[in-house]
Structures are given as structure tokens and as C-alpha cells.
Design a protein around this nucleic acid. Structure first.
Lengths: 260, 260
DNA sequence: TCAAAAGTGTTTAACATACACCCATGA
DNA sequence: TCATGGGTGTATGTTAAACACTTTTGA
């Protein structure tokens, strides 16, 4: 086995034979499901495709590695910045899954490493940067039976939404959907929106303020929208939620797919 | 943008310019963390590398895609069969994560899609098939500070073990470590081994037999090893465990890494 | 003084933990 | 009849769910 002069090119022999053969190469892409909560709905950042295939259709932002030496996680952060104008530093970006079915891209073999990002509702309402047209879209509209996205992005989005729903249960990530300072009610609305069910405001308040290091009081209060002013909080250092916040059983939220 | 005659080869232009450029290609590998519980220890299937780099070192079984049209999940199942002699049908095989750091393989750019498999302790004690030497090894020994595996496989294994530990909490996957028919005590030993802590046998029994569709009684009982015979069960149709089986707090199990 | 939103207290049920105790087998 | 492991019962604490009630603002 040897390395070519060209970076990233590998040829070699199998583990069990010395017969040299060309190691198959594939095009590697990253795609991003950037989620937020806006206007009482869970929304996803979509771009309109400017080129074939699927020209004119909506798709998740993403793209190929810049070159054969680019780190995959860095490529995700770069595409996020380029296509949506958001800075990956400071927001939550985690790997979701890799989708590698042979037929998923009509151009040839493209394997995509997908990521989920959670961003505050205020963030860059629409992108600057390279993208043709980047816009927030309610996920409910996109996951509807007859709605379609480019490639297998609808399925990816469904997986991302399910990931978000379950992460709210046992982590403090709900707060990453909020502005730097937020009220308990705003945090509760994130849960209600993502899960698609109402929660008891009183029990929620007690529970969430009882978890150590989840919420840090700022000492200030809201004012001016009728009703008693609410205390403002900042995100605390905790990442895991203990005890966990379980989704109430009952009527399921609209659409989603099952992941293993 | 166009497709070459060669399968899997893609060239094209960026979304925002019509300047054609060569899409960078990478070698795509799959690696498997095949876990089992044997002799009171969580064990992982390792192979000895027969070729450079890392010749002679232990590594996770895995390899490159067979060709540019092979499905990634299928490649994982194929490598499992080839290198360990296990049949992917019927056992649990799920994607773990994709590792794509540029420097992770000295031969050049290799991105690996990793999987975790849970297999019963009885399964194929050592591999037939292609592998030079496939053997079960206790994960504790491998994750010890000074122990090393080829490539970044130690880190991958640590992630896989943490995945296994947390999956036992809220799914019925512990039963996939057991033979087709098993006792409640055998199931409990799986939990104790993977988590590295003892559980109260009596409470465990009540809890696990109380979860709907987790265990299906066969009507038969064990006999012959002193003490009251235990009832035998088969895996039921349930996949999620409700209520969840939470890891008791306290002394942490040896080694592991944190995943987001 | 009333509506609206924030926040507390109280009750009840579900579930976890600890452990006493009984059951069924082999030696 | 004793040792061994399987399995049930019961007391006690913790957390969740439901909801009555108090607090603090704007109109």
C-alpha cells in the first residue's frame, strides 16, 4: 500500500491479499439542519438551489468539502457561515448521521455527513453570504406528506427534528434556542413548540428553576407587557438535565421519522 | 455540472459560480465496534492488522467500500461478515458517528463511518472468514491509559462504549447481548457488566418483568445449578424501555469518553 | 378594580430504593 | 436440613401531575 503524490489519494491492497486495487473514492458533502424557534413554530433554514439537480427546489444548506484536506466538522461550520451568515462559534452544532445510499444523488456517488444546529430565534433572520435565498421555514410545512425537498433532505430533516425533540428531554439545549437573557415562560414556549404540546406552566417553572446550574438569575426583570414582570435568566454551565424533562405521553406532534 | 462516465465520479461548479472545479474525493471506510458480554466483562472484537500502517497492532474490524456503488450500511454488514464471521441479519447494528479528521490515517484522506453492533455472548467466539486474527478483548484492557489501538480506534471504541451504556437506559437492547432464551439474572448481569455497578436483584426483577412487551415468558425454567430454577424469557417486541432504567449515581465505571 | 401573567403551596399518584421474607432446587 | 439462588411484599423517599391560590404589573 502506498500514498500518491496527490493529497488524499490512496491506493492499496486488501488486508488479505497482496493484489493491488484502486480504493474507491467518493464525493463527500456536509449538510446542515439549522433549527430555531420563531413565531411559535419550529423552523429550519432552507436555501433555494441555484443549479441542477433539483434547481429551484428547496434544500438544506450544505456542500462538498472545499478540498481533500478539509476537516469534516470544519466544513460544516464553513458551510453554515457561507450559506446562512451564521457564525458557528458559540452556537450548538452536532453531527447527526451520515447518509450514504448509492442512489441519493443523481450526479453520482455522494455521501453526506449531516449536522444539526440549534440557534436562537433572533439570529440572522435571513442569510447574507453566498446563498441564493436562505430563509426560515416552519418544519411542519416541510414535513407535510406532499411537500418535497431536494435529494433525501426531507428524511434528514425528519431525523434532525426527532433528534432535537429527544435532546430537550435530557439536556439543557432548549436554552440555545433562546436569546442570551430569557424568561422561564420563553423557555417553556421552546419546549411546547418543539414538542407540539402544552406543558403546565407552574410545574415547569418549579422544575426548571430547581435544576442546579441550568438557569442563572440575572437579577433583572421584564417589564411592560401586562401582567407580573418575569425574572430574567442566562444559560448556566449545566449541559445534562437531571432529573430529565420527559415528554408527556399522548397526542404525538405532527410528522417525524424514527431513528434507531 | 456533469457526471463522468466513471461511476461515482462527480465534477461540477459551486452553487454560486459557474467556474468548474474538481470536486474533492475521499476514501470512505467503515469501522465496527462489535460489543458483547462474555465472562463477566464487556468485550470488543479486535483484529490484528496484517498490513501497514499499524501492521501488527490491534484495530477495530473494518475496511474501505468495495466499490463506488456500495451502500455504506451494506459495507458495514459485509465487513462484519468478512472479518468476524457474524451475520448482520438478526443482530443489532447501528451507525455511531463519522470520523473525518484529515490526519487520522497516515496514507492520506480517509473518512470512516463507524457502527456499533451488539451481539450475544455465545456468538462466534473467534472469527472464521477473512480476518488474520479476530478475537474478543475486554474493553477495560483496551481503554486503559497506556493501551493503544491503530488509528483513532481507541477514541471510537470509547464513544461506542458510552453509546452502549446509555442505550441500556432507555431501550431494550440489553437483551441483544443475551442468548435467544435467557433468565432475568442473565439480563441483570448484562446491565451490571456494561455499567460496571451492581444492581439490586430483587428490584431489577420486578422492574424488568413489569415493562410491557420487554420479556416474553417461554414457560420453561432452568435447572441444575443449585438454587431455585429461574424462568426463561425471550425478547419481546418492545424497543423502548418505559419507564427508563436509570444508571444509579455513584462510582463511575472505568474509562470512557464524552460524546456530545 | 379587573385582567393577565408570574410564581408558590398542597395533594395525590407513580416510581425508586432498601431490605425482610418466602420459594424451590441440589447436595 | 442447609446452602444457594429465584422471586414477592412492604415501608419509605423522591419526583411528577393537577390545580387552588397568591403576587405584581398595566389598563
Amino acid at each position: 500500500m502506498r500514498v500518491d503524490g496527490r493529497p488524499g489519494q490512496v491506493t492499496g491492497s486488501d488486508d488479505t491479499s497482496d493484489e493491488a486495487w484502486e480504493i474507491p473514492l467518493v464525493a463527500l458533502a456536509v449538510d446542515l439542519a439549522v433549527l430555531t424557534v420563531r413565531d411559535g413554530a419550529l423552523q429550519v433554514m432552507l436555501v433555494e438551489r441555484g443549479i441542477e439537480p433539483y434547481r429551484g427546489m428547496l434544500a438544506l444548506p450544505g456542500g462538498f468539502l472545499a478540498d481533500t484536506t478539509e476537516d469534516v466538522d470544519r466544513a460544516a461550520a464553513r458551510e453554515l457561515a457561507e450559506e446562512t451568515g451564521l457564525d458557528a462559534a458559540g452556537l450548538h452544532l452536532e453531527q447527526l448521521r451520515t447518509y450514504g445510499e448509492p442512489g441519493r444523488d443523481p450526479r453520482g456517488r455522494v455521501v453526506t455527513v449531516c449536522y444539526v444546529a440549534f440557534v436562537p430565534g433572533l439570529a440572522a433572520p435571513t442569510a447574507g453570504g453566498d446563498a441564493r435565498a436562505a430563509a426560515w421555514t416552519p418544519v411542519d410545512a416541510v414535513l407535510r406528506p406532499r411537500a418535497e425537498l431536494a435529494f433525501d433532505h426531507k428524511r434528514i430533516l425528519a431525523d434532525a427534528v426527532e433528534r432535537a425533540r429527544s435532546k430537550l428531554e435530557y439536556t439543557t439545549l432548549a436554552a440555545t434556542f433562546c436569546a442570551p437573557e430569557f424568561t422561564v415562560t420563553e423557555l417553556r414556549q421552546v419546549y411546547e413548540t418543539v414538542w407540539g404540546q402544552e406543558l403546565d406552566a407552574r410545574n415547569f417553572h418549579r422544575k426548571v428553576t430547581g435544576v442546579a446550574d441550568f438557569l442563572v438569575p440575572t437579577g433583572t426583570r421584564t417589564s411592560g407587557q401586562g401582567g407580573r414582570p418575569a425574572a430574567l435568566y442566562r444559560r448556566g454551565p449545566a449541559h445534562l438535565l437531571h432529573p430529565a424533562m420527559l415528554r408527556p405521553p399522548g397526542p404525538k406532534p405532527p410528522a417525524a421519522s424514527r431513528t434507531s
